[in-house]
Design a protein around this nucleic acid. Structure first.
Length: 266
DNA sequence: GCCATATGGAAAG
DNA sequence: TTTCCCTATGGCA
């Protein structure tokens, strides 16, 4: 259940363990067996992340495309254990093993399909992509910025946590139409996402609380910590805002949980 | 044991 | 706009 920073870490981990090596590729669960066979025993060239999409390149132009969706998960091990649970894809050498469970997508695709997919992925803050086209679309859109931030053609790799936190840090109400944003506000949020998400790649956590607010954040209830970092509003509904002490709000936005501070984000 | 929930996205209606 | 998919986990009987 990752956002973009985790996918970039997973690509790096796959490269560290397997790049340029001959690997065993299997599908203990069976659902990916036919495709796994076609790359089993071949050389894994490299893995790369674009937003939340992962591409694992093998020799002979074979590519496995993985998207974790809500439930997908990678495990990295320094041995190959007996399969536990439903393992869609397993990549292994004598030394290391990577296991993939519950992905939204795990398919063998052609170079043409890679191209089509990549063309649909918007600028990724972690890749330092140029956001100017997305910027123009956002600043001309009547759609709420809270919805736009989840649009992967505009902000690749941003998920529900980074959305909530970037909006909070910018002091922007999620319902604000894109066209009502000041251009400065877009630029500030974009550069904020770049630094927050790159920090996330380094640490493997989502930490968004500024140093001056950390004392309050450290006193939070344990239940807020499920995502593994320190945040202002994500999953903190009903609790006191670290800045103004009013209750953090929660609602549904296009089928996803939305968190924000009604006072700090007018 | 059963049920609700989750950092997502595509397909169906 | 709603439904569906995929899996693991935590809370509660």
């Amino acid at each position: 259940m990752p956002e973009g920073h985790v996918v970039h870490r997973q690509a790096a981990e796959l490269n560290k363990l397997f790049a340029k090596q001959t690997v065993g590729v299997t599908s203990p669960q069976g659902r990916f067996s036919v495709s796994a066979k076609s790359v089993n025993g071949s050389v894994l060239r490299r893995a790369q992340a674009f937003g939340k999409h992962l591409f694992i390149n093998f020799e002979n132009d074979k590519v496995i495309h993985v998207h974790l969706g809500l439930y997908g998960k990678w495990s990295f091990l320094n041995r190959t254990p007996e399969p536990v649970g439903l393992i869609r894809l397993q990549i292994a050498t004598e030394e290391f093993c990577a296991q993939l469970r519950g992905p939204n997508a795990c398919t063998l695709i052609t170079p043409g399909e890679v191209k089509t997919l990549k063309a649909k992925i918007g600028p990724d803050p972690i890749r330092k992509d140029d956001p100017s086209i997305a910027r123009a679309k956002v600043l001309g859109s009547v759609t709420p910025i809270g919805v736009l931030l989840m649009d992967q053609t505009l902000f690749a790799g941003v998920g529900n946590i980074y959305r909530a936190e970037a909006l909070f840090r910018a002091g922007v109400n999620p319902l604000t139409p894109g066209k009502d944003l000041q251009p400065d506000q877009f630029d500030q949020m974009w550069s904020d996402l770049v630094s927050l998400m790159k920090k996330g790649v380094r640490s493997g956590r989502i930490d968004t609380v500024r140093p001056e607010h950390m004392p309050k954040a450290m006193k939070r209830a344990a239940r807020d910590d499920r995502h593994g970092g320190e945040v202002y509003v994500y999953r903190r509904s009903g609790l006191a805002c670290f800045i103004c002490s009013s209750e953090v709000a929660e609602s549904d936005m296009r089928g996803r949980n939305l968190f924000w501070c009604p006072k700090c984000q007018k």
